[in-house]
C-alpha cells in the first residue's frame, strides 16, 4: 500500500482509539460497540463472500458457537479483573476455525446458490442444537455470564477497545491476503474456479483457509457479544438476521475491498439504530432501512467503493486521453489507456 494508505489506516485507528475518551454518552459508545462488531464480522465475511466469491449464509452459526463457548467457559465463574474473558478470545477463535475447517471442506464442494443454502442449513442446525441440547446450553432459558466488574462510568470502554484491536486484526489479515498470493488465488477462484484449478492454483486450500480464518474471527465477535450482553438466548445468539446484516453491509460498502465492509457496517448499523430510535419500537424502521438500501443499490449497484473507484478511474482516463501533451491523445483511446495504466496501479 502507498504512504497515503498507511496514513489513512493509521488515522482511522487513532480516531477509533481516541473516541471513547471524548466523554460520549453511553448510548453512543454502545452504538459504536455494535458498529465495531459488525465491521469485524463484515470484514471477516468478505474474505469468503467477497474475495473467494462463496456467499456463506452460515456465519451467524459461528457467531453463536463463539457466544456459547464464552458462556460455557465463564458460566458461574467469578471474575477478578474482568479481563479474563478477553484473554480467552484467541482460544474461542481457534475453536471456531477448527469447527469451520471440516464444514468448509464439505460445503465448499458446492458453489454459489447451493453453497448459500448448505451454509444456512448449517446455521439452522446449530440453532436447533442450541435450543435442544439443554444440558449444555440451557435451551430457551439461555445461559448467563458474570457481569464485568468495570466502573459504571466507562463500562463499555474495555469492550470497545478489544473490538478495535480485533478490527485491526481483521483488516490486517484482509490486507495481507490482498498483498499475497492468497489474495491472487482467491480472485482466481472467484473469477473461474475450474480454470484456476487447471493452472495449478491451490483452489481447495485457499478457500478452506479463508473460510476458517473468517469463521474464527466471527466466533470471537460472538464471544465478546456474549460477555457484553451477559445473558444469551438461542434465538439471538444464532440469528439469521446477523448473517443477513453482515452480507448486506459487505455488498453495500463493496465486496473484495479493504474498506468496503467497514464502511457498510458504519452506515447500516448506525442507520438502523437511529431509525429504530426515531420510528419507535414498531417494525417501521425496517421499511426505512430497506428504502435506504434500495436507493444505494440503485445508484451504486456494485457497492459504494468499487463504484466510486470505477468513476474516478474513468474520469482520470478521460483526462489522460484529452490532455494535449500525452502520447495517448495523438493516438486512439486504447493508447490513452496504456499510458494511464502504470499510474493507476502504484
Amino acid at each position: 500500500m502507498s504512504r497515503a494508505g498507511v496514513a489513512r489506516g493509521g488515522g482511522f485507528f487513532l480516531l477509533l482509539l481516541a473516541l471513547p475518551f471524548f466523554g460520549l454518552a453511553h448510548w453512543v459508545v454502545n452504538l459504536l460497540v455494535f458498529v465495531l462488531m459488525f465491521a469485524i464480522m463484515a470484514s471477516a465475511w468478505n474474505l469468503v463472500g467477497g474475495f473467494a466469491g462463496y456467499p456463506s449464509l452460515g456465519h451467524a452459526a459461528f457467531f453463536g458457537i463463539g457466544a456459547y463457548s464464552m458462556a460455557l467457559m465463564f458460566h458461574g465463574a467469578a471474575l477478578s479483573s474482568g479481563y479474563e474473558p478477553f484473554v480467552a478470545l484467541p482460544l474461542i477463535g481457534l475453536v471456531g476455525a477448527v469447527i469451520g475447517w471440516p464444514i468448509a471442506i464439505i460445503s465448499m464442494r458446492t458453489r454459489a446458490d447451493v453453497f448459500a443454502i448448505v451454509t444456512i442449513t448449517f446455521l439452522f442446525m446449530i440453532q436447533t442444537l442450541a435450543f435442544n441440547v439443554r444440558s449444555l446450553t440451557g435451551g430457551s432459558q439461555g445461559l448467563s455470564l458474570p457481569v464485568a466488574p468495570f466502573p459504571a462510568a466507562s463500562y463499555e470502554r474495555p469492550f470497545y477497545l478489544v473490538l478495535v484491536a480485533m478490527l485491526a486484526v481483521a483488516m490486517l489479515l484482509t490486507f495481507g491476503a490482498m498483498r499475497s498470493k492468497i489474495g491472487l488465488s482467491l480472485v482466481a477462484v472467484r473469477a473461474d474456479e475450474d480454470k484456476a484449478r487447471g493452472i495449478g492454483v491451490r483452489v481447495s486450500g485457499v478457500k478452506v483457509l479463508a473460510f476458517s480464518v473468517s469463521v474464527g474471527l466471527t466466533a470471537m465477535v460472538g464471544g465478546v457479544w456474549a460477555y457484553y450482553e451477559t445473558f444469551i438466548y438461542p434465538q439471538f445468539a444464532v440469528d439469521p438476521l446477523i448473517t443477513i446484516a453482515v452480507v448486506l453491509m459487505t455488498f453495500l460498502g463493496g465486496r473484495a475491498t479493504l474498506w468496503g465492509p467497514v464502511l457498510g457496517a458504519v452506515i447500516l448499523e448506525a442507520g438502523q439504530q437511529t431509525l429504530a430510535y426515531r420510528l419507535g419500537g414498531s417494525q417501521f424502521y425496517l421499511i426505512a432501512y430497506a428504502l435506504v438500501f434500495l436507493v444505494i443499490m440503485l445508484l451504486l449497484p456494485r457497492g459504494i467503493l468499487p463504484t466510486l473507484e470505477e468513476r474516478i478511474r474513468l474520469r482520470r482516463r478521460a483526462r489522460v486521453a484529452n490532455a494535449p501533451d500525452t502520447p495517448g491523445a495523438a493516438r486512439t483511446a486504447d493508447a490513452g489507456r496504456v499510458a494511464l495504466a502504470p499510474g493507476g496501479r502504484s
Binding site: 490482498m178 498483498r179 499475497s180 498470493k181 492468497i182 489474495g183 491472487l184 488465488s185 482466481a188 484456476a196 493452472i199 495449478g200 492454483v201 491451490r202 486450500g205 485457499v206
Partner: peptide, 20 residues
C-alpha cells in the same frame, strides 16, 4: 501480469509471499 503470475503453479509455502 497477474494472470501470468497466478499460473506459475506455485506451492503451498509461496502462498504467503507477495502477490507479485
Amino acid at each position: 501480469l497477474e494472470n501470468l503470475v497466478v499460473a506459475a503453479g506455485y506451492g503451498w509455502t509461496r502462498l504467503f509471499t507477495p502477490r507479485v
